[in-house]
């Protein structure tokens, strides 16, 4: 090989970069987050369900919140009627966080895992500790 040393060195560097996700995870076992839904408020509920089915909430809650924000601030709506016909007050702090009064163990466990930082907490209060 011509200039073999440099080419091999370059290839080794490339391999290390490509394998980096594997290398830095050696010996680690990443635990999936387990968001806690057993807040005192939820435990008092007769039917312990979210505003929409849990599967829907897992993937769509951010877009639902966005719709809530528009509904509240642009259309002046205060009540959300869900797919089952139940009504919930539209509010981030006084609805979501009323049931999920443990945002640190709920919202944040998932968000840290997925590396998202909703900017909502720049203004909205996350309950005691404003992030």
């Amino acid at each position: 090989m011509y200039k073999g040393g440099r080419i091999i060195a370059g290839l080794l560097l490339f391999a290390c970069l490509a394998l980096m996700p594997f290398l830095i995870n050696i010996g680690k076992a990443a635990a999936k987050p387990s968001p806690q839904v057993n807040t005192p408020f939820i435990q008092q509920l007769t039917t312990q369900t979210c505003v929409e089915p849990a599967a829907f909430m897992k993937t769509e809650h951010m877009q639902l919140l966005n719709q809530w924000r528009d509904a509240a601030l642009r259309d002046g709506k205060t009540v959300y009627v869900n797919s089952q016909g139940q009504s919930f007050p539209i509010s981030l702090e006084n609805s979501c966080l009323k049931c999920h009064s443990n945002p640190q163990q709920f919202c944040n466990t998932c968000h840290t895992y997925a590396a998202v930082k909703p900017y909502c907490w720049d203004c909205h209060n996350q309950g005691g500790t404003s992030q």
């Binding site: 594997f22 076992a29 999936k32 897992k58 769509e60 895992y113 997925a114």
Partner: peptide
């Protein structure tokens, strides 16, 4: 067509830690 990113990351992390797990339902 949103998917559950937590489920996705569980799969990708299982792949890179060489303990592949049968993924739960992802879209």
């Amino acid at each position: 067509w949103k998917v559950d990113i937590v489920e996705v990351k569980a799969l990708t992390m299982s792949l890179v830690t060489l303990r592949p797990e049968v993924p739960l339902s992802i879209g």
